[in-house]
Design a protein around this nucleic acid. Sequence first.
DNA 1: TAAGGTTTGCGACTATGGGGCGAAAACTGT
DNA 2: ACAGTTTTCGCCCCATAGTCGCAAACCTTA
Lengths: 224, 224
Amino acid sequence: MTLGVVLQVRDGVLQVLLWQRARQPFKGLWSVPGGYLAEHDTLEESIRRHLAEKVDVRELSHLEQLETLSDPKRSPREWQLATAYLGLVPSDIDPELPGDTDWHPVDDLPPLAFDHGSIVLVGRERLRAKLSYTNLGFALAPDEFAISELRDLYAAALGHDVSATNLQRVLLRREVLEPTGRQRASGPTGGRPGSLFRFRTPELEITDQFAVLRPPGPARLPVA
Amino acid sequence: MTLGVVLQVRDGVLQVLLWQRARQPFKGLWSVPGGYLAEHDTLEESIRRHLAEKVDVRELSHLEQLETLSDPKRSPREWQLATAYLGLVPSDIDPELPGDTDWHPVDDLPPLAFDHGSIVLVGRERLRAKLSYTNLGFALAPDEFAISELRDLYAAALGHDVSATNLQRVLLRREVLEPTGRQRASGPTGGRPGSLFRFRTPELEITDQFAVLRPPGPARLPVA
DNA sequence: TAAGGTTTGCGACTATGGGGCGAAAACTGT
DNA sequence: ACAGTTTTCGCCCCATAGTCGCAAACCTTA
C-alpha cells in the first residue's frame, strides 16, 4: 500500500494532514492518508489517487518517495508493505477537507495508528534536509513572497530561527531566488513594505553539489 | 522483489556485483542480484538472503534502502515492484563468487537487464552523496588505512581527485577519523610510510547536520 | 506636518573553514 | 652519501556565512 505524509506550514507551524480512522484496527486514532495499490498502478499514481480523496491533488507542489516499510509487525493483522511519500502544499492555499480529515502540528502529534508517527518524522527530516541543499523552498511558498515571509516558512519547517539577511543573500547567490520588481502591499502593522521575490525554477533541483542550510553553530565541509 | 546494488572499490575503480542471467527474459544479460520476497519477510532480510547466494553477506559493511521501483513496464512480462538496496564491501576483502557472478566497473557497464542500469547509477549517486556528509567512508575502507589509501578510495567512489591533505584535515576535524599510532609497512616504491588511521564509529552517522565533500570549485552554504 | 513606532534593506566587519602550496621529514635503493 | 618518493605539516589565501547597526520606507497619531 501507499502512504502520504502531506506537509504544509499553517499559522507559522509545520503541520501534517491526518484523518481519523473509522474502522478497526486503531479505530478512532489519527493516521496518515493512503491505501491499497491497484493492479498495474505506479506507486506514485496510487498515492495521488488516495490523496485525492482528502485534498485537491493539483495543490500538491511536490511529491517524492520516502521509503518502503516492511516490518512484519507494523500492522497487527496482516503482513503488509507500505511505501511512504512526502507531499508538500504551498502556504497560501487552504484546501477543503472532508470531515474526518484535519491538519496537526508535526511537533505536537496525537497518538497515531500503526507506525505512522515515525513516518511523519521521516518526512519532516527529509524536508529539512532538502531545504538545505535544494530549492525545495518553492514547494512551501506562494508564487511571490517577501523575504520575511520566506524566512518564517523556513523557520517553521526547520524548527529554528533563520536570519532573513542571510537567507536572502544565500538564495540570491545560488540564483534560486529572483526579484519580481513588485513589492508587498503595505503591512497591517505598518513598516516598510518588503519587495517580492519568486523562485526561479518550480522544478526541484540540487543547488550546488551539496549546499547547506544549517542551524546555528560552526562547521561545514568539503574537500577537493 | 528486492534488488541489491553491491559496490566495492577494486583496483582503484568503483565496481558493482553483477550476475549473468541464465533464463529469459533478458537471458545472457548481466543484472543486479536479488529475487522474490518471501512471506512475512522484511525487505532487508529478503535482500540479505538473496545476496547470500552470491557473496558472504557478513562481508557487507553497509546496507541501506535506495528506492522502490514500480513502473508497470519495467518488467516485460509481469507487473512487479522492486525495492533496491545499496550494499558496500570494504576494499580489503575479496569475496569468493559463483561462476555466473563478477565485478564490473560502474563507469563501464555492459548492457543490463530490466532497469538495472539506472538502479546502479542511483546507488552510485547515493554513495557519493553520503560520502560527503556522513562517515560512510568506513564502509569502503579496511579497519586501518593510510590517508593516501583512503584518498584513493574516495577518489574512485567520487569520480574526481581528492586532496589527501584536505581529506585528513576535514575528517579529523569532524572527529570521524582517529590515528592508531601505528604506521604502514614501508611502501614497495619507497617513500615515507604513512601513519595508519581508523574510523571512530563503524555505524553510520551524520557527521554534522549536513557537511559536505565537494568536487572542486567554490560554494558552500548555511543560514542561521 | 511632525513625531514615534515598525519593518525592511543594505553595507561593513568578523569569524570560520576549505584549498593550495611548498618545505621538511621519513624511507628505499643505488 | 645522494637521489628519488611519499607523507606530513604549517602557512597563507579566499570564499562565504554570521552579526550588527543604521538608514530607508511606510503607517498611525498628534
